[in-house]
Simulated assay, not measured.
Amino acid sequence: MGEQSSGDGRKTGKTAKKVTPAKKAVATGKPVAVKKAASAKKVAVRPSADESRTALVRRARRINRELAEVYPYAHPELDFENPFQLLVATVLSAQTTDLRVNQTTPALFAKYPTPEDLAAANPEEVEEILRPCGFFRAKTKSVLGLSKALTEDFGGEVPGRLEDLVKLPGVGRKTAFVVLGNAFGRPGITVDTHFQRLVRRWKWTEETDPDKIEAVVGALFPKSDWTDLSHHVIWHGRRICHARKPACGACPIAPLCPAYGEGETDPEKAKKLLKYEKGGFPGQRLKPPQAYLDAGGKPAPPLGAA
């Protein structure tokens, strides 16, 4: 498990309508009821050598608050109308873009609208529909398998428990938490490639295993924040903090990022790197990039500031 740290730093060892609670919360402004979700195995949170646990928690939560203002309507970018469609779409999204999935699923759900329909489908016909998503044979096997399991074991309904979801073919913790958080209003952290990249850049954790990342990051936030946190981080990763060339000079959380400078810091050049995806880029709140830097061109205020 390695050494842990005490609080003082000493080492001690949308195009489709979504009929979901999360969507209703956006439309009505009413909070979604939060229910318990199973957590991953516990992993010690290890702040960096120059940052106490308390400072890490404050910085992490401040980043989330900042991102919540930048992306107030962050949500799953997969089109769905019910839990079954979200489950299938999330499985299909592996190794491809949400846009590609959204272009593919309308034909799939028009022909096979229920788990019973998809379970009885001809595999070759499903493969032809899913071909644009890549890995279409494996994905066909997964969606047919999970549809059969839903039909035989759950009465054709998507279960609302993590332990049941992860037993379905092609469904892991990441997919399960997408469904739980957005179809059932139950908190969960979605550790996709964007989430992994950003939390490591922000020095929230040095873990590389998704389950360990989930546990470490989950310990920094109350459970009620987990689902929205996932959306905020993923949206930021898709729009600004890219894998190869992050737009550091246009980033609203530059003062809080230990990795500032890994990408383009020139404000004008950074603006050209911003990606506008479905849902747009809510840039009205963004300050001029130079406002996040001190006279020497470095992030200000100091990292860990409250």
Rank of each mutant, 00 (worst) to 15 (best):
K167V: 14
I129M: 05
I234D: 08
A250G: 14
S147R: 12
T227K: 11
G237N: 03
I129A: 05
F184Q: 07
R201E: 07
G218A: 00
E152F: 05
K139C: 11
A243L: 04
G156P: 07
A121K: 09
R197D: 03
L180D: 03
G185I: 02
F154C: 07
R244L: 10
G237T: 10
L150H: 02
K148F: 14
G249V: 03
G218C: 05
K203F: 01
L162W: 15
V216G: 06
E128F: 01
S142T: 05
W235I: 00
G185Y: 02
R239V: 05
N182T: 00
W204V: 09
A247V: 05
T208C: 00
G145M: 03
D117C: 01
V143P: 07
P210W: 02
A254I: 05
F184I: 01
R173T: 06
G156N: 13
C248Y: 01
K212Y: 14
V179P: 08
G185Q: 04
R161A: 09
P246R: 04
P169R: 10
T193D: 01
P210Y: 00
K212N: 15
S230W: 06
T193C: 07
G160C: 13
F135I: 15
G155W: 13
P159R: 10
P210A: 01
F195Y: 12
E127I: 02
G160S: 07
L229G: 06
D209T: 10
G185M: 09
R201N: 15
R137M: 04
G237Q: 09
V166L: 01
L162A: 02
K203S: 13
I253F: 09
V166Q: 08
A254E: 15
V233M: 13
F135P: 13
E214I: 03
T140R: 10
C248N: 10
R244E: 11
V216H: 01
G156E: 08
S142E: 01
V179M: 01
F177S: 13
D192V: 01
D209E: 15
S142L: 00
I234A: 08
I253D: 13
R200P: 00
E125N: 11
K245E: 14
P132G: 05
P222F: 02
W235R: 14
K167F: 15
S230H: 08
G185E: 00
D117L: 00
G249H: 08
L144Y: 00
P252A: 14
L229M: 06
D164A: 11
P169C: 12
G160K: 14
E125H: 08
C251P: 12
S230I: 03
H232G: 00
S230Q: 10
E214N: 15
K245H: 08
A120H: 14
H194S: 07
A247E: 10
W202Y: 11
T151S: 14
P222T: 02
L198C: 13
P255V: 02
R186I: 07
T140Y: 12
R173E: 08
S230P: 09
K203A: 09
H232C: 10
W202K: 12
E157K: 15
F195W: 06
L180V: 05
K174I: 07
R201L: 04
W235Q: 02
L146Q: 09
L180F: 02
E157P: 03
P187M: 01
R197V: 03
R173S: 02
G145S: 05
N182L: 11
